[in-house]
Design a protein around this nucleic acid. Sequence first.
RNA 1: GCCAACGUAGCUCAAUUGGCAGAGCAAUCGCUUCGUAAGCGAUAGGUUAUGGGUUCGACUCCCAUCGUUGGCUCCA
Length: 603
Amino acid sequence: MQPMTDKYREEAYTHADLYCIRHSAAHIMAQAVLDMFPDAKIAIGPPIEDRFYYDFALPRSLTPEDLETIEARMRDIIAGDYTFERRVVSADEAAAIFADQPFKLELIEGLKAGQFDENGNPIDDAPEISLYTQDTFTDLYRGPHVASTADINPDAIKLLSVAGAYWRGDENNPMLQRIYGTAWRTAEELEQHLWRLEEATRRDHRTLGKQLDLFSTNDHVGAGLVLWHPKGSIIRREIEAFWDELHDASGYDFVYTPHIGKSSLWETSGHLDFYADSMYAPLQMDDGQDYYLKPMNCPFHMHIYNSRTRSYRDLPLRFAERGTVYRFERSGTLHGLLRVRGFTQDDAHHFCTRAQMPDEIDFALDFCLTMLRGFGFEDFAAYLSTRPDKFVGGIDDWEQAEVALEAALHRAELSYEVDLGGGAFYGPKIDLKVKDTLGREWQLSTIQFDFNLPERFDITYTGEDGHEHRPFMVHRALLGSIERFFGALIEHYAGVFPVWLAPVQASVIPITDKHVAYADEVKKRLKAAGIRVEVDDSGNRMGYKIRAAQEQKIPYMLVVGNREMEDGTVAVRLRTEEDLGAMTVEDFIARAVEVIEAKSADL
RNA sequence: GCCAACGUAGCUCAAUUGGCAGAGCAAUCGCUUCGUAAGCGAUAGGUUAUGGGUUCGACUCCCAUCGUUGGCUCCA
């Protein structure tokens, strides 16, 4: 279980040929853009995961047609078989070469001072300045490149999109135009990559949410505020029922707290100091008080803790709540269910003594994995974030907490990356991401120490020694937000939910109107067994009804005609297109109930 | 918030240079009563996101607002 840092990852990629291919492709693209816009100012153009980009300041906005032109020009340059020639120069020489390229001059200054490299990443030492030239284009780059432009496969490159990006990632800087492209060794690899992109589109939870009638948002309600439709709500209720069941079995106390609280509460918690910008504006009432919609549940839980004296005998104490919180996220950041303004955190706060703390973390991580595995996620990526430069609390507490987090990761046999100094100012944390069937990572769970709020709310317990002590407090969210989790779940399953989550589990399909009464009878019996079932009594033919059920990804289609009516059976067709033939209603119920109770992925 | 694109029927999309807003699916009503992914016909459905402007005339051009999308920034 080796920790793998970002730096290590980047190193590994640097030496791979795809890194060279993409970086070289970026340079070729920059040359193509300069051919088209001789006055263009070029910024940076690094390879990134699966792709590359280059940023430009251009006299006008690029259009999708421009991308085609640029791509065609890139193929010409590739066909030209121009060598990538490396040259080491002094900073002054470099400055002379890039005299009319202000972004490059800034980078050269950075290289000279040893502040950041040619991609704008922070570095320690001043490296030598090397240039690469192909044909008419020269760029700053440490290397390596492919030998010649002809080493790029013209059938394995594609420009993907154009987007705005701030120079050096700082929103106070000018906005540049960024062209994203992708480059691979072979046309097959490119094809595969494009297929993955299409597959991601096919699984898009926003599209599926509409098709399956799961949820919507609405101009009249407000951006980032989700309406859960009946079918989406069924899934949510199943998620929540499972969540309740596990929490009940694991020593949690359930709590409920209000949606708003007085300004003084958020002053005490510090939220108004740090996060006022992303909180909804206050409700100003006649009592002279300002009330705020809650951006977090913690302050309320603090007050529940503080509502009486606590003994070490009470600890560990675990308050759990699915609390709906509101954050006024910047408009440009909203995205389907994944980034919204009103969402339900599956929150819990653990309070424990110093001695209990390591076990408490073990417990929290185990619990987390149990829950996520229950939803069919098997592949996890863990991230440990440690103490930043600015922090509150004692260094000893931080160190013990970090040790406990790391030990829990080892015990759970999770590989993880360490983000040194990446923790929040109030405590170190573990973030857990799940990988879906396409290998994409979804940030869901977090287990996070807090050395700030216990202090601010002055929470204590009476120890064995009769004195007051400060408990350790841990925030913990497993699914993160129910909305975001739902989005991830939709995409993970591509809307083809396991039976226990499927909004409609069985569709009874009468072949003609004569069979509707029997279909209703079947429905009644299935319903009594707790199966979510509907009868398709539309005037359509059987084939049409099957198609309709198939499109709604309903797991079981129960066809009933004369034969079934006489025998008291149903003809079972699965959404996998497998035909199980006729079986008695009791047999079907037994099978379905077993699958549902086991939360099985199979039908 | 920033850059860019977009917003037409419940859904997916058309509509020539500014000149009568249309199709498929879904819905409704008929006909059909059918054996494992779309039977036939008819009807209805619109202040073209909202508000303003230019014009004889605006879905089309301009401005503002709201929303969506791709990114950037942010994400307690």
